[in-house]
Simulated scan of single mutants.
Amino acid sequence: MSAIDQAETGSGERATLGGEVQSLREQVALSLFIAVPFLAFLAAIPVAWGGWLGWSDVAITFVMYALTLHGVTVGYHRLFTHKSFKPNRAVKIVLAVLGSMAIEGPVIRWVADHRKHHKYSDRDGDPHSPWRYGSSLAGLTKGFLWAHIGWLFDPEQTPIDKYAPDLVKDRDLVRISRMFWMWAGASIFLPPLAGFLLTWSWQGALTAFFWGTVVRIGLIHHVTWSINSICHTVGEQPYRSRDRSGNVWWLAIPSGGESWHNLHHADPTSARHGVRRFQLDTSARVIWVLEKLGWVKDVRWPTPERLEMKSAA
């Protein structure tokens, strides 16, 4: 247990909401955050058809999705997991908070899981490989469901002191992880508040809650989980990696460029995943803008020489 954990809360588990055994409370909360948005997906088309979708709902949902998505892709993933660039303190804190608002777990827990995934990618020890049960149709079907959602309920959690010791030493990230449920609450209630303020009606607040909170959370969750399941089952592999990671072009826009997954596993610290022509990577563009503003530095951009070295051709 780190000194910061002890000083802040007296318990590493309370500091990061990430003990080595998943609690019943966490499993119940997780079930609700999966089931409710999924039901909203089923209801989305008839709700929209019934006139319960306005321009304010579209705007709120788009803004909240973009902010929280890039909080995960730029913050949780490329910064905190892989150290693809060095931010100033304000950028670090904002990205950690926005990533938390995607409601995919506290930043330290998320990073520990993802680092373990890279260490054992598609081998024994990988928390969410779709090849876990073999390559037969039945085994791959079971493995696909495990990689997409089943692994989230695994009682055995990744030890954060082993896989994220650097983050446990960061006072800002420990505090943000400890306050995860506050950020989750903000993510839930900001859309209906914005909907009410934009329309001055409770109906505007209700529809903004449906689209900007429930549907948006469900969409960002399933897009993120699809990188684990779909992008490790199918896709092109133009670069050499030790696993089955592939590029899935139709997920590029909703995933912020994360679905150019083959290069990521071939060169995990690269700040850009979509490196070829027309490979849209909005997360890399966000990092580029932050660099131009002078708010981040030492960005690990891919070079032609490194890409050639990683090429499978």
Score class of each variant (00 low, 15 high):
207 T>M: 01
12 G>C: 04
32 L>A: 14
210 F>S: 00
253 I>S: 00
240 R>C: 07
96 A>V: 09
24 L>W: 13
246 G>M: 02
19 G>D: 00
159 P>L: 13
138 A>G: 02
223 V>Q: 08
284 A>K: 07
306 R>T: 11
208 A>C: 03
250 W>E: 09
60 I>P: 05
119 K>T: 09
24 L>M: 13
181 W>V: 01
20 E>L: 11
1 M>L: 13
9 T>S: 04
34 I>D: 03
44 A>L: 08
2 S>T: 13
68 T>V: 13
144 F>C: 04
33 F>N: 07
9 T>G: 01
308 E>C: 03
268 P>V: 15
76 Y>C: 09
44 A>C: 09
8 E>R: 09
166 D>S: 09
300 R>N: 11
84 S>V: 07
119 K>N: 01
164 A>G: 09
28 V>T: 08
217 I>H: 13
95 L>E: 09
292 K>I: 01
228 N>F: 07
271 A>P: 04
102 A>T: 14
207 T>N: 01
261 H>L: 07
250 W>P: 01
102 A>Q: 12
310 K>E: 10
292 K>T: 07
134 G>R: 08
173 L>R: 14
104 E>Y: 08
171 R>M: 00
127 P>F: 14
121 S>A: 14
169 K>H: 02
281 D>E: 02
187 S>P: 06
155 P>K: 12
128 H>Y: 08
127 P>Y: 15
36 V>M: 10
140 L>V: 06
120 Y>L: 01
106 P>E: 05
260 W>L: 06
79 L>S: 04
220 I>N: 13
179 M>D: 14
241 S>C: 15
186 A>W: 12
94 V>L: 07
95 L>N: 11
234 V>Q: 03
237 Q>A: 03
86 K>H: 15
143 G>E: 10
182 M>P: 00
169 K>V: 00
253 I>M: 02
6 Q>R: 15
61 T>M: 11
139 G>D: 05
67 L>G: 04
62 F>I: 15
275 V>H: 12
255 S>H: 05
299 V>L: 03
176 I>S: 03
91 V>F: 00
200 W>L: 12
263 L>P: 01
1 M>T: 14
242 R>F: 15
118 H>C: 05
71 G>K: 05
237 Q>M: 04
84 S>Q: 03
290 L>I: 08
154 D>F: 14
187 S>E: 07
10 G>I: 03
104 E>M: 06
183 W>F: 08
78 R>M: 02
42 L>K: 05
199 T>W: 10
168 V>Q: 06
113 D>L: 04
201 S>T: 15
157 Q>H: 15
313 A>N: 07
215 V>H: 02
267 D>R: 09
177 S>E: 01
196 F>Y: 13
283 S>H: 07
